[in-house]
Design a protein around this nucleic acid. Structure first.
Lengths: 337, 337
DNA sequence: TCACCTGATGTAATCGGTTACATGAAACCG
DNA sequence: CGGTTTCATGTAACCGATTACATCAGGTGA
C-alpha cells in the first residue's frame, strides 16, 4: 500500500502539500492539486484511516452497543433489527461507519466498563445504544462517559447523551381512539413490563383516551406481558375468562398481539368478530398473519435518521446534547379490528 | 487519555516493557508485570487501537458489506437480519469487532471500488459479504481483492474468498420427501428467480427426490417467484387454476409460502386440508401464522459461527482459503402439512 | 527602494503504539 | 575463572498521517 510519502516523492512535492490536497484543497494551487490527484489515482493511493485517527482523534466510526444482556436475547426482536439496519444506512449518508462493538477482551464478562473500554480504545466518534431495556451497568457506564451517545427506544440521558423514542403515549391514545370509534365500550389491554418506560407510556396514553371518552378501565382488564408471544397468549387467556369478556384488546407489542389472537382462536372465537385486537410496533408479521394485524407503527427509518442527526449535532460540538427526539406514531389499519 | 509513555514514566520502565506486558506478558518478569498492570488500572490506561493498527496492520475489525443494492432492499429480509446478528456475536467471541462499511466518500455512487476503498482505508482484517444476490460489481471487486473474504448465502469464490451456504439441495429433498410421506402424489413448487443459485439448488433437490419416488413434476407445476410475499400469492393463484389442482406445494422461501397460504384461503380452500404448504428459511413468521408453517430451517447461528471460523482460518494465514461450508438443513414440522 | 503582506509550499514535531537490536547482569559450565 | 547462555529491559526507528511554524517569491503601497 502506497503511503503519503511515496505519493509526495512521485509528485515532487512535500507530504504536507499532499495532505492539504485531501483535507484543505482550497489552499493548494490548481496545478499542484491536479498533479497530486492524478498521481494518486494512478498509483491507487488511499489515506490510511488509522494514521489519520491517530493524528486527528476522529475515526469517522460510530460505535454500536447492541444486546448487552445475553440472558434476554433482544437481538431476536425484529423491531430492534429493523432499527439497526435503518441506522446503518442513515449513518452511511453522513459518511460514518458503524462499528458493532465486542466487549473489551481485557475486561471480565461482568465488568461494567467492558463496552466503555472498547469505545475508548477504538476512538469512536460517538456511540449508539440499542438494547432491550435491561439496565445493564455496562450501558449506564457509557451514558455517563464523555463520548457523545444516543440511546434508541430507551430513555437515557447524560452529560453527552440523548435519546430517540416513539410517541408512545400518542400511540396508546391512537389505539384507544380507534377502538372506541369502532364502537367498542369494553376494552382491555395487554401491557409490557411495569418498569418498562415505553410500555408505561403506551398504557398512560391509552388510559387517557379512554377516560376522555368516559369509558372505564377495570384493573382486571389490564394484564402485563413481557413483549414476547407466549406472554400475550397467557394474558389473553386470562382476559377471556372475564365476565363479561372485553370486546377489544390493545396489546402493547405486536408479538403479544399475535399471541393474543392465537388464544382467541383457540377459544373458538373470531377476530375481529368476537374480539378485536390492535398491536404496537408494526413488525413484519403484522402484515402477514391473517386477518392482518391493525397496529400502531413506529417509524424505524426515523429512528435511524434521527439518531444520525443527533449524533452529527453532538460531533459538531454543541455545549449540551440535543433534545430527545420523539417520533410520531401512526395507525395502520388491517383486518383485526 | 493516558499514553503508553505516561504509563512507562510512572512505572519507571521503558515503553517497550509496557508494550510487552500487554502483548507478550511471558517475557516480562512477574514483578514488573504486576507493577505495570497495577498502575495501568490505576490511571485507566488503555492501548490505542489506531496506533496499534498503524504499527501492526491488524485492526481486529472485520468489515461487513451489506445491502449494496439500494433498488433491492435486502435489508428488509428477516433471514439476512438474523444472519447479521448471529455473525456479530460469533465474531465477538473471537474478539473481533464488526465494521459495517459505508461506501468510500471519495468514490462515486457507481464506482465499483467504493467498498474496496473503504476496506483498504480502514485496514480491516477481513470482509464478510451479506447481500441479496445482486451481482454488484462493487461486491465482485472485493472477492477478487487480496483481503480475506467470506460470502454468506452467496456462491462467491476468489483467491482469498470462500462462502457459506445451506445445503439447499438437501433441503429441497427434505421438503419433497416429507410431502410424499404425507401421501401427496401431485406436488407443485414455487421456486425463486432462475439465476439465483440457492433457489436452483432447492429446486434440483426437490426434483431428484420426486424422481426417485417416481412422481412426475409437470412444467406447469413449477412457478417462479422472487422470494417476496406477493410473488408467492401470484404463483399460488396460478397453481390453483390447474386442473387437477396440486394437493401440496413447496415454496422455496417462507415469505412466498405465506403468500401462497393467503391465496389458498382466498380461494376458499383450507391449509393443509385442501392444499398442504411447506416453506424454506424458518423466519419468525413461520411459527406465528396459523396453522404454523412447516418449513425447512436454515441454521442462522451456524452461518455466523462458520463465517467467523473461516475468517479466523484465513487470518491465521493459510495458503488457500478454506473449503466452502455447507450447513445442514432440517425439517420443522408445524401445522401446514 | 524598502517594509509588508499574501499565497504556495516545505520542515519537522507529533499522535501512540510495536519491535529489531543492543545492553547488562546473573547463571551455567567445563 | 573466562566464556557462553539466558533473561529482563532499554534505545530508537518506524508505521502513515496532520499541522504549527518557517520560508520564500512576487506583488503592493508609500
Amino acid at each position: 500500500m502506497s503511503s503519503i510519502r511515496e505519493l509526495a516523492r512521485r509528485c515532487g512535492v512535500s507530504v504536507a502539500t499532499v495532505s492539504r490536497v485531501f483535507n484543505t484543497p482550497e489552499v493548494v494551487s490548481q496545478q499542484t492539486r491536479q498533479l497530486v490527484l492524478g498521481m494518486a489515482a494512478e498509483i491507487g493511493y488511499l489515506p490510511n484511516e488509522s494514521a489519520r485517527t491517530l493524528a486527528t482523534k476522529k475515526s469517522h466510526m460510530v460505535g454500536l452497543v447492541w444486546d448487552t444482556d445475553h440472558r434476554r436475547p433482544g437481538w431476536r426482536h425484529p423491531f430492534l433489527q429493523d432499527i439497526l439496519v435503518a441506522l446503518k444506512s442513515a449513518l452511511s449518508t453522513h459518511g460514518l461507519h458503524l462499528l458493532m462493538l465486542a466487549p473489551d477482551p481485557g475486561a471480565g464478562p461482568g465488568d461494567p466498563r467492558r463496552f466503555l473500554r472498547a469505545v475508548q480504545r477504538h476512538n469512536v466518534d460517538g456511540v449508539v445504544i440499542i438494547d432491550n431495556g435491561s439496565r445493564d451497568p455496562a450501558v449506564l457506564a457509557l451514558v455517563d462517559a464523555e463520548v457523545p451517545c444516543v440511546a434508541l427506544d430507551l430513555r437515557f440521558t447524560g452529560p453527552n447523551c440523548t435519546y430517540i423514542t416513539s410517541d408512545n403515549a400518542g400511540g396508546g391514545r391512537l389505539a384507544a381512539t380507534h377502538l372506541i370509534e369502532r364502537g367498542h365500550r369494553h376494552i382491555a389491554t395487554i401491557t409490557g413490563p411495569a418498569r418498562n418506560w415505553p410500555a408505561a407510556q403506551r398504557l398512560a396514553g391509552f388510559r387517557e383516551a379512554l377516560a376522555e371518552a368516559g369509558i372505564p378501565l377495570a384493573d382486571d382488564d389490564v394484564v402485563a406481558g413481557d413483549f414476547y408471544l407466549d406472554s400475550g397468549h397467557a394474558a389473553m387467556t386470562k382476559l377471556l375468562a372475564r365476565d363479561p369478556r372485553p370486546t377489544a384488546v390493545f396489546a402493547a407489542g405486536d408479538e403479544m398481539a399475535v399471541g393474543a389472537i392465537k388464544a382467541i382462536r383457540e377459544a373458538g372465537l373470531r377476530v375481529p368478530g368476537d374480539v378485536a385486537v390492535i398491536g404496537f410496533d408494526d413488525i413484519e408479521v403484522a402484515a402477514l398473519i391473517p386477518p392482518g394485524l391493525t397496529t400502531v407503527t413506529q417509524d424505524k427509518t426515523g429512528f435511524g435518521t434521527a439518531a444520525a442527526e443527533s449524533l452529527m449535532a453532538m460531533l459538531a460540538g454543541t455545549a449540551t446534547p440535543p433534545e430527545p427526539t420523539t417520533l410520531p406514531t401512526t395507525l395502520i389499519l388491517r383486518g383485526s379490528t
